[in-house]
Amino acid sequence: MFTIHLTMIAGAVIAATSITTPAPASLPPPVVVLAGTPSSVEKNCKTAICRNFDVYSDGRLTPVMISTLGLGDARIHVGSCAANAALSAATLLRFTANARGTRLCVCIPRSAFPVTGTATGKIIASSAPTSAEAAVVLNGSPPAADHFVAALLWGVGFAIPALFSTYLGQRVYIWQKRKDDERANTVSRREQFRNEPEAVQTFFNVFLPQLAGTSDEDFAGEIRNQYASIEGFLTNDDSVAMNEALDAKDRALIVAILRRNFPDRKAALESVESKG
């Protein structure tokens, strides 16, 4: 018994061939080679994904049987994939290989692919007493390049904002704490909100600074869209006054009402007081 491992490179595809023979008789056993078999196949939206490959013999006309393992109900036919109806073909194919090579097509059904990750199947060419095999990796995550980039970008998209937010959060915390300390002895209506809710922080720290330089109309429109998130922190009288100021697009009045209700937000309000 001896084993030959043969690796053929046809185009970009590698077919690993394993040939097992009994003790030699008068003629050496025929050698069958699989070439151009796909090393991996990506799942896509088609019912079956078809790929060409070639089968050669060592010069003699050799009866060969082609079958698959781990590729579901894969179909094989003689001829290139474009020329034949894939799913009408057989799961087992017998034909005579020659030295010129025979073009075959294998169609792997979508159901053979894993939902995620990969699975490995085989294309087997049997010609008693020898056989050749080629491994085919089924990739269940379509499409591979997109997926890899996407995974990378998910990572980047998460890590950078997380680091940034940690930094921003620390800065906000330090700044807020200093302000709170300054006001420690001040009795105010907003005493209960010493640790301001997130809605107020977002409004003054993130949203409002973006309104610097806007027109009065844009300013009032933008504030109106977000008003619900801070309305609860205004006195009842100022809530009514704010609605009127927003209707009138009165920038100065809007800022004055906000200043009255959020006296410690003086700096943020100054930056948007006048249009650019």
Binding site: W154, G157, F158, P161, A162, G169, V206, Q210, E222
Partner: peptide
């Protein structure tokens, strides 16, 4: 501006 604010405030979401 609202979109930027949403993105900045939702730090644990992509």
């Amino acid at each position: 501006r609202a979109a930027n604010t949403c993105k900045t405030s939702m730090t644990d979401t992509i």
